[in-house]
C-alpha cells in the first residue's frame, strides 16, 4: 500500500519560515502567470471558437512573453538557491547531438524574426547520450536569448562547438559571437554584477539573465566569460560539463 511519510525531512523543509516566504513569493507570481498562459492556450486551441491567423499571432506574442516571465521567475528562484548552495544538482539523460539540433533550429527561428543570421559549426564527434544537468539546456536557451537580442538587425550570431577532455566528464566548449554590442573587457565583466546598470546601450547587462547563466554554469562546474569581438561585437566563451558533478 502506498502511504505518505509525514516525517520526511523534505516535507519539514517547506514549513520553515524562509521556505514559507520564498514559496509564497514565487507561487503568487508564477501562479498568476500560469493562469494567463492557460487562458491563452485554451483560446488558441479554439475553446471559444476558431481563431483567425491574425488573432493567433497576437495570442502567440502574449503567450511567449508570459512564458518569458515564468522563465525569469524560475531563474531568479534558482539563483537564490545557488547562492546558498541549496540548489539540488539533478541529472537527466542528455543527448548533445539532438540538443544542438533543436537549439540551432529554435535560435534560427527566433533570430529570423529580427532578420538576424545564425551559423552553427559543430565537431563531428559530439558524444552520444549521457547524464547531464538540466541546467545545461537552460543556460544555452537563456544565453542565446540575450545574445540574439543584442545582435544588430541583419547581424550574425555564430557558434562553434567542440568537446574538450576525454574523462568521465568531458566539457562542452562553445564560442558564440554576436555582431552588435562591442564593449571593453572590463565593462563586459560588470554584466555579471547584481543590481548594477552597466551603461546605456549595453543590452547584455539587462536583468539577471547573464548573471544566471554564469552562476548556473559555475554551479555545475563550468564557466562563462565575455570578451570583445574586435570590430564586430561580443564573444561569449561557455564551458559546460556533460555529466553532472557533485551528485
Amino acid at each position: 500500500m502506498r502511504r505518505p511519510a509525514p516525517d520526511d525531512p523534505s516535507i519539514d523543509g517547506v514549513t520553515t519560515p524562509e521556505y514559507r516566504l520564498i514559496n509564497h513569493f514565487f507561487h503568487d507570481f508564477k501562479g498568476g502567470l500560469s493562469t494567463v498562459i492557460m487562458c491563452l492556450d485554451a483560446l488558441r486551441d479554439g475553446i471559444e471558437g476558431a481563431v483567425t491567423p491574425g488573432q493567433d499571432k497576437w495570442l502567440e506574442k502574449a503567450e511567449r512573453n508570459c512564458q518569458h516571465l515564468v522563465s525569469l521567475i524560475d531563474d531568479f528562484r534558482d539563483l537564490t538557491r545557488m547562492e546558498d548552495s541549496s540548489h539540488q544538482l539533478e541529472s537527466e539523460p542528455l543527448d548533445p547531438g539532438a540538443m544542438f539540433e533543436r537549439l540551432s533550429t529554435r535560435v534560427a527561428d527566433d533570430a529570423s524574426r529580427r532578420r538576424i543570421r545564425t551559423a552553427f559549426d559543430f565537431v563531428d564527434d559530439l558524444p552520444g547520450p549521457r547524464a547531464g544537468s538540466p541546467l545545461v539546456g537552460r543556460i544555452l536557451e537563456r544565453l542565446y536569448g540575450v545574445l540574439v537580442d543584442c545582435t544588430r538587425t541583419g547581424g550574425l550570431v555564430q557558434t562553434t562547438v567542440r568537446i574538450e577532455g576525454t574523462g568521465p566528464v568531458p566539457e562542452l566548449v562553445l564560442v558564440i559571437e554576436s555582431e552588435g554590442v562591442e564593449s571593453d573587457a572590463e565593462l563586459l565583466d560588470t554584466v555579471f554584477d547584481k543590481f548594477r546598470q552597466t551603461g546605456a546601450g549595453l543590452q547584455l547587462g539587462r536583468g539577471y539573465t547573464m548573471l544566471f547563466c554564469r552562476a548556473a554554469a559555475r554551479y555545475i562546474g563550468g564557466d562563462l566569460q565575455l570578451a570583445p569581438w574586435p570590430g564586430r561585437g561580443t564573444r561569449a566563451d561557455l564551458r559546460l560539463p556533460l555529466a553532472t558533478t557533485g551528485t
Binding site: G13, F26, H27, K30, D74, D78
Partner: peptide
C-alpha cells in the same frame, strides 16, 4: 507551480 520552490522533486 511549487515543485521547484520546495526541496521535493
Amino acid at each position: 507551480s511549487i515543485q521547484q520552490q520546495t526541496r521535493m522533486k
